[in-house]
Design a protein around this nucleic acid. Structure first.
Length: 236
DNA sequence: CGGAACGTGAAGGAGCCGCT
DNA sequence: AGCGGCTCCTTCACGTTCCG
C-alpha cells in the first residue's frame, strides 16, 4: 500500500525524524502522523468495527507513543512501533467492552467510504453498482464476524498486506500461529461468503425485462430464418 | 536450482460445558 | 467435585510458489 500524498516532504530519514521529535519539533510529529494515519486508522477500524472508537484508539496510540518516545529503541521501524501501540490500544478497548456487531452502521460507513475499488474507468450500471455494494457489504460483514484473533491477523495480512513476520511481531505471537489463523480466517470467510453469495448470485448479471425479451426474440428470429424448429433444438 | 516465504493438513493440548 | 466429550487453538511438518 502506498502512503497517501504528503503535504510535507518526507523526512530525510527515520533517525532524523526521531531526533527532531525528541527535540520537540511539532512539524516532525505532524509528518509522522501524516505518514501513518491512514494505515493506523484502518488497523484500528479493522479490530474495533467502529469508526469513532478507531479514531480515538489512533489518537490514544499517538499520545502514548509520543509520551514514551524515549523508550523507542529502534529495533523496529517507527511505523511498526506505532502500529504495535495502536493494535494494543485497540485490542485493549475490545477487551474492555464486549464486541457489538452493528451491521447497519457498517453499511452506512461503507456507503460513505472513499471508493476502494480503484474506480474503474467504465461507468457501472445501476445493477452493477448495487451488486458491488452488496458484495462489499457481505465481505465486511463476514470479516466483522470473525473471532477477534482471526480478524486481527486477517486485517494485518490481507488488508494491510503485512508479511507473516511483521504480523507476528505486531501481535506478539509466533509466525506459525499467524499462518494458521490467517488460513482459518480465509476458510471461515469462504464458508460465510459462499452462503452470503448464494443469494447474491441469483441477482448477479441480471438479464431480465427488455434485454431478455430482445435476445430471445433475436435468437428465435435467426432460428426461423435458417429453418430450425424448437423441437429440433430440443432433440439435439 | 536453491532458498525464502507462504499455504495447508494433522496431531496434540487446553479450556469449556454438560452430566452424574 | 470429578469425569468425559467436544471445540478451538497452537505447533509441527511438509508441499507449493516465487524470486534471485
Amino acid at each position: 500500500m502506498q502512503v497517501q500524498t504528503q503535504e510535507h516532504p518526507p523526512a530525510s530519514g527515520e533517525s532524523e525524524l526521531l531526533r527532531r521529535m525528541r527535540g520537540g519539533d511539532s512539524h516532525a510529529f505532524a509528518a509522522l502522523m501524516r505518514q501513518n494515519n491512514r494505515r493506523l486508522y484502518r488497523l484500528a477500524r479493522g479490530i474495533l468495527h467502529d469508526e469513532h472508537e478507531a479514531e480515538d484508539a489512533v489518537q490514544e496510540g499517538y499520545l502514548r507513543a509520543f509520551a514514551h518516545l524515549a523508550s523507542f529503541k529502534g529495533e523496529a521501524t517507527l511505523a511498526t512501533w506505532l502500529a504495535r501501540i495502536v493494535v494494543n490500544e485497540a485490542l485493549g478497548r475490545l477487551r474492555r467492552r464486549r464486541p457489538v456487531s452493528d451491521i447497519n452502521s457498517l453499511a452506512d460507513s461503507l456507503a460513505s467510504d472513499a471508493p476502494a475499488d480503484g474506480t474503474g474507468a467504465l461507468p457501472a450500471s445501476p445493477e452493477q453498482l448495487a451488486a458491488r455494494q452488496e458484495i462489499r457489504r457481505a465481505i465486511e460483514h463476514a470479516v466483522d464476524t470473525l473471532p477477534t484473533p482471526f480478524r486481527a491477523v486477517f486485517v494485518l495480512r490481507a488488508i494491510e498486506q503485512l508479511s507473516t513476520k511483521e504480523t507476528a511481531d505486531l501481535l506478539g505471537i509466533p509466525e506459525e500461529t499467524v499462518k494458521t489463523r490467517f488460513h482459518r480466517a480465509n476458510r471461515l470467510l469462504r464458508e460465510m461468503l459462499s452462503e452470503e453469495f448464494a443469494s447474491i448470485w441469483d441477482n448477479a448479471f441480471p438479464f431480465a425485462g427488455s434485454r431478455c425479451d430482445r435476445l430471445v426474440a433475436h435468437v428465435l428470429d435467426r432460428l426461423a430464418r435458417v429453418g430450425v424448429g424448437l423441437e429440433t433444438i430440443g432433440s439435439a
